[in-house]
Write a protein that binds this DNA or RNA. Structure first.
Lengths: 242, 242
DNA sequence: TCAAAAGTGTTAGTGATACACCCATGG
DNA sequence: CCATGGGTGTATCACTAACACTTTTGA
């Protein structure tokens, strides 16, 4: 903090959100189509400015989450990715953006009549292979968010946030496979998640869908960190399990 | 980004720095004593506001680093910890601070005549056990910085940033021990750091100081991530190595 | 009775820890 | 020649990937 009485320059503060969900076993991120310049017609992460100078930054993220994706705070993870403050990142002026990552269980298509009317879920692979380009520095924020989620899956119980109240181990595995972008051995996965104490707890019931033996149902445990961790493979093996 | 033409509230943006160094094999952090209210006489992290509305946030961190610790950008790591933006974190008004972590090799006592004249290196243990209290939310920032450094030591070549141009493996081990706050087996450490390809490269020379066999000298390699990682023990063992 | 999905057992390989041991140097 | 720190060899243990195998269901 400066000790003299010179007045520092004010800056506009915004929040941007990287909201991930899982739909049809594919990792998807929420994007909005910009209606005005700059970047009119381009895709961007949802976000917005602080509502007033008393609003907490995290609270602003929650408010935008509600406005843009109609998601309230229950069953939700919200984590700060960091601040993005390059002077030229917004051609309209000096804007510093604090980015947050949100994880949500499978969501329906955004509904008309809300702020999220022009928002759509976009498959993460479409962004990774360049088929969808993002405005501002949002590609960088998106990339940071994806890497954050991928690495957090290893040592935290984050994956259960993608699931509904109860879920099968196979559903949980599909979360890991979708976020990490690779295939896992279902039998080893089965034991690993159960060995992590407090990660998931059996709920007693079973679920039957189509053929095959019914799967036991689980719910998220109370621990937020899992031990031992589920470490993702370094770099090999795609698809083709068993 | 908001699509209407309402004017969002401006916020003052500051940077705060968690600057770690190693002195006498003890991890130390740079603190300044506040000369004005609020928190007059208390200890705080060095930092300051953006110089003008064109200054990059990272550039401001570099500038403060130069002003407060007389450190230029060479042989230096600077990483963003995140944004701290609670509305009441600064009693003077709305200030959002972007925190950075800096790592520096052993530094002399800050010199008089610079902005850092009233700054001092403070042992990290003194803060951890509550003997030194910090102003604002700086204890939280400090804690985040310490945990960041501890975990980054596992998979990145960060530790070499604490060392001088050339160093012995024992000096590198002292970095790990000081940051992690525990003792390591020197013989296993010796092999582990050399097994990590591109982490350190031998420089051919040796160093002799006092009795004992001379140690080979190394310099930092070109890789920034190390593989396999040096994982810190979960929770046991203090001091007493070998 | 067959295919498919859930769940179990077993083994070979990998890597880490602990520690015995040898090497080189200064006093 | 001995204390001290540098450096090497190796047994033991834990953990994991791979995969054969059994169980339970729907068609």
């Amino acid at each position: 903090m400066s000790d003299d009485d010179w007045i520092p320059p004010p800056v506009l503060v915004a929040v941007d959100l990287v909201i991930f969900t899982l739909r049809d076993s594919v990792l998807q991120v929420l994007l909005v189509e910009r209606g005005i310049e700059p970047f009119r017609g381009a895709w961007a992460l949802p976000g917005g400015f602080l509502a007033d100078d008393r609003e907490d930054v995290l609270a602003a993220a929650h408010r935008e989450l509600k406005e843009e994706a109609d998601l309230d705070a229950s069953r939700l993870h919200l984590e700060q990715l960091g601040a993005y403050g390059k002077p030229d990142r917004d051609p309209r002026g000096r804007v510093l953006s604090v980015a947050y990552l949100a994880i949500a269980p499978g969501l329906p298509e955004p509904r008309a009549g809300t702020d999220a009317a022009h928002a759509t879920w976009t498959p993460v692979p479409d962004i990774l292979d360049g088929r969808v380009r993002l405005a501002f520095d949002h590609h960088e924020i998106f990339g940071d968010g994806l890497e954050w989620a991928r690495s957090k899956l290893e040592r935290s119980a984050l994956a259960t946030a993608f699931c509904r109240e109860t879920f099968t181990i196979n559903e949980l595995q599909q979360v890991y496979e979708a976020v990490w972008g690779l295939g896992l051995d279902s039998r080893n996965f089965y034991r690993k998640v159960q060995a992590a104490e407090g990660f998931i707890v059996p709920v007693g019931a079973e679920r039957r869908e189509g053929r095959g033996r019914p799967a036991r149902l689980f719910k998220a445990g109370d621990r937020t960190t899992i031990n031992p961790p589920l470490v993702r493979p370094a770099a090999e093996a795609r698809e083709g399990k068993s």
